[in-house]
Design a protein around this nucleic acid. Sequence first.
DNA 1: AAGTGGTCTAGACCACCGC
DNA 2: CGGTGGTCTAGACCACTTC
Lengths: 242, 242
Amino acid sequence: MTVDSARRHKYEIVAAGIRAMITDSLQPNDALPSERELMEIHGVSRMTVRAAIARLADEGLLYNVHGSGTYVGSPNLFAKAPKLTSFTEDMVSRGHVPSSRVLEISRTDASSKTASRLRLSPGAECTRIRRLRLADGNPMAIETVYLPGDVLPIEDFDARVSLYVQLSERGYEIYRAEQEIQAAILDAESSTLLGVPAGSAALEIDRIATDRRGLPIEYARTIYRGDRYSFQMAVTRESGDK
Amino acid sequence: MTVDSARRHKYEIVAAGIRAMITDSLQPNDALPSERELMEIHGVSRMTVRAAIARLADEGLLYNVHGSGTYVGSPNLFAKAPKLTSFTEDMVSRGHVPSSRVLEISRTDASSKTASRLRLSPGAECTRIRRLRLADGNPMAIETVYLPGDVLPIEDFDARVSLYVQLSERGYEIYRAEQEIQAAILDAESSTLLGVPAGSAALEIDRIATDRRGLPIEYARTIYRGDRYSFQMAVTRESGDK
DNA sequence: AAGTGGTCTAGACCACCGC
DNA sequence: CGGTGGTCTAGACCACTTC
């Protein structure tokens, strides 16, 4: 039984019902009952059925064919579209146990580049946190985070608590980010920290994270070991169209 | 005037109207008229207004705050969520002129890895196309594409026409893909082709592309010059939730 | 308390697919 | 042609923010 009585919205109940129907008795590319049939099955209006289906289609669990029907997606397509995650969340979702070692916490004046990324005036105060990030106790990445000074003053940072949780507690809710993924080669210092030979391949991910209003909250540069980390995602054609 | 009389759906007309309103007279974080007001302005029902707003919010142009209003997003957040693009489309959107040089076209028996990626039986026939990809005449990437033999027999391939167009003409509509982005280091052959020193950093993007039903159509491995190419995208938190 | 977006109903017509 | 998903209407109540 997948009944979840704690759900608040009807479309969530319907979505759960469809999920159960798929795992119980449907194969990839099988047709779902029509939207009108699902209305009667769940005793809801068509819009509610469609809201549930839209949700599941976003996840790649279903796909629609206009004029024909709604079908079950293929199992190898369940990989989800990329979303904004902290290192901690990312590692947990990959089945690793995350941890970290603080390399540096300091208050600095923003460089012109950092200032423009965080939309601060040049030379404004910011907090810089550099950490070695580990997965299952093994070095995975080196992360350098810059925060505007008033977002998280250096003296308030608690190394034992997830950064995103600390930010949330102070009223800064990260919502959106722009990321850039580049290839890099490890220098002597980084390769030593990560425990690989100098000159090894690495993945560098730069991120500017903002709240809903577009106010920059975090600029992070993370250097991942190329031999242990890759970035995976599902993409579709005609993103907004359809 | 942004009036587009050729639009088919009402929500597209409303969306165009909101777009014009933003560029004409609104600043980031300004509030939009309420949904009820927009109903009257455009003479449509509320659901139509909401469909238009949802569209624009997906693009990052707007954001909603429950109980408060709908607001204009920040201009630096207009970068869009990643979507499935061919090399040609990707380069054009970056403002480059794409071209390519065919290095190899052959019919091969799928290796066990390739076969499993394309969901073929091991040793099945497939078409392999290896091309040097250029942007503005300069080497940018080396792309190796594998297609199931019945999707595009080797003798039907036309090097002068975009691969995705050829596939579409044969009834294979690519819709979705899973991509993996990794760090790599160029070997002697690749670095020569790309015109950079051996040992340079590179970005490797592996892609399995399928149609709506999840049927694999293409497996592509592309090695990009690390000094000229980076992968950029916008991500949000709580992808499906909200 | 008033106004906002979020969910939901019970209908309707249209565009498209397959027989 | 009937059945399907896509769009749309004109209402309603709820959850939340703001004052």
